[in-house]
């Protein structure tokens, strides 16, 4: 394994760490800061891929991830946090059980998706061996888990952004989709976050309503 390969694997592992950290974090501002970190790490992976494959498209993609996904989306989210931002939190309980369940989600995700489905089907990847696609899949699963485990509106949006980050990572490792499609997807995600933040102003926590049952 040469230096650049090691670097890409290490950065990929860092995306998983950020995903777990977001999941266990009750403070919304801290979650947003971590999603910026995750986006920047994915941007760095894209830059490393640009160097590895000598392909300038990855630099553009990396810049898009860092500036649009990392900073713009996070700015839009942070604006929705009420005053005394650093204290705004969701009251969660059972952190060890959340961590345990998240680990189960990640492991089951890896086993089902990679070993049983994709290991024999995806043979030709843009980088390294095909086991690299385990990382994006786990980030996507943890993003879904974040939405399932939380009741706070902003925590849901962060889970969604995390999933989209997983998709970008998957696209980087498999095959980057045409730039126009990639750009449209980025704009879609920003618009969705914008709309979600408007809805977030109306309601901050989600409960089961009798009227919406059955």
């Amino acid at each position: 394994m040469n230096l650049i390969t090691e670097l890409i694997y290490m950065l990929s592992a860092a995306t998983l760490l950020t995903a777990f950290y977001i999941l266990l974090q009750p403070f919304i501002q801290s979650m947003i800061r971590t999603i910026i970190t995750q986006s920047v790490v994915i941007g760095l992976i894209s830059f490393a891929m640009a160097y590895y494959l000598r392909n300038i498209d990855f630099i553009l993609l990396g810049l898009l991830v860092i500036f649009l996904r990392g900073f713009l989306v996070s700015y839009l989210l942070e604006r929705q946090i009420p005053k005394r931002k650093e204290l705004f939190r969701e009251y969660t309980k059972g952190t060890p059980s959340t961590l345990l369940t998240a680990l189960i989600v990640a492991v089951v995700g890896i086993f089902i998706v990679y070993f049983y489905v994709f290991s024999n089907l995806i043979t030709d990847v843009a980088f390294g061996t095909n086991n690299i696609i385990v990382f994006p899949f786990v980030v996507i699963f943890l993003g879904i888990f974040q939405i399932l485990a939380r009741r706070n509106t902003l925590a849901h949006v962060i889970g969604y952004v995390e999933q989209e980050n997983g998709i970008v990572l998957m696209s980087i490792f498999l095959i980057p989709v045409p730039f126009i499609v990639e750009l449209t997807v980025f704009l879609d995600v920003i618009a969705l976050v914008l709309i979600a933040s408007i809805v977030a102003r109306e309601t901050s926590e989600h409960k089961n309503l009798e009227e919406l049952r059955g």
């Binding site: 995806i122 996507i140 993003g143 879904i144 939405i147 509106t153 849901h156 969604y160 999933q163 989209e164 997983g166 998709i167 998957m170 696209s171 498999l174 095959i175 989709v177 045409p178 499609v181 997807v185 969705l192 709309i195 979600a196 809805v199 109306e202 309601t203 989600h206 309503l209 009227e211 919406l212």
Partner: peptide, 30 residues
């Protein structure tokens, strides 16, 4: 309050679903 909750469920559930849809688009391109 009910329509806001319905809108929220719509945004989140459909967006999560469409993440999988985009996964299929990447695989088509692949």
């Amino acid at each position: 309050s009910i329509s806001v909750e319905a809108a929220w469920r719509y945004i989140i559930i459909v967006s999560v679903g469409l993440v999988f849809a985009f996964m299929s688009i990447i695989l088509i391109y692949y």
